[in-house]
């Protein structure tokens, strides 16, 4: 089980990447859900600690991969603060945790960039990031992809079964699909506009 500190750190990261947003139209103001609204941190922590860590030989360590990842984000956040590169620091963050959670959304992303640019002393990072810049790059990249894939795919729609892939049964449409206008799986579409070319399998090509 991840610590409150770890969960808050990941919530802060998710909130920076996919925040709730507001749109105004004739019906008034509409709130568009963000990643934390659908508890996407559960997905990220599950993938890191239950799926990746065991393959990296980390399942017998006294801490989770997500814990050390949160700490790495905090180290970068602290560096940003110490170097006066953070535009502002919240004393009362929405997701109270370490330094990372006190940063503005933009500065949290800058902290990720510090790590991606390897602008930290990798000797001082916790295991398994210690002196392992390749792994750090791979993890920061993977987190970005994972968060966007998780939010815009149907994962949250599996409801109670969402941590048990072999029993997946979609319980409801994910809000992200409604946000983007994706209709979900289909038997087909009638949007057929003909053929530009045809192949006859005697080595020939013809105009349709």
């Amino acid at each position: 089980m991840q610590t409150y500190y770890t969960r808050a750190t990941f919530q802060s990261l998710l909130d920076a990447m996919i925040p709730p947003t507001f749109t105004t139209d004739t019906c008034g103001i509409t709130r568009s859900l963000g990643a934390v609204d659908i508890r996407l941190e559960d997905y990220v922590l599950w993938v890191l600690d239950d799926k990746l860590a065991p393959r990296l030989g980390l399942n017998e360590m006294p801490f989770n991969l997500s814990d050390s990842t949160a700490y790495v984000l905090d180290i970068a956040a602290n560096q940003l603060i110490q170097n006066n590169q953070a535009i502002m620091v919240h004393n009362d963050p929405i997701f109270p945790g370490g330094w990372f959670t006190t940063l503005s959304r933009r500065d949290r992303l800058k902290a990720v960039m510090i790590l991606e640019g390897l602008k930290v002393n990798v000797e001082n990072l916790p295991f398994p990031y210690t002196n392992n810049p390749g792994f750090l790059l791979n993890m920061m990249d993977g987190l970005n992809r994972l968060i966007l894939f998780g939010f815009y795919s149907e994962w949250i729609g599996y409801g109670e079964a969402r941590f048990h892939p072999t029993t997946y049964q979609l319980a409801f449409l994910p809000p992200s699909w409604l946000q983007v206008g994706y209709p979900g799986p289909s038997f087909g579409y009638r949007d057929f506009r003909g053929y530009l070319l045809k192949m006859d399998h005697q080595g020939g090509v013809s105009y349709a």
């Binding site: 992303l109 960039m113 991606e116 970005n144 992809r145 994972l146 966007l148 894939f149 815009y152 149907e154």
Partner: peptide, 16 residues
């Protein structure tokens, strides 16, 4: 959308 978002807006050599 999940694949599109991650490939289009979540994957880069040049940061944010």
């Amino acid at each position: 959308p999940g694949l599109m978002a991650s490939l289009t807006y979540g994957f880069s050599e040049s940061g944010y």
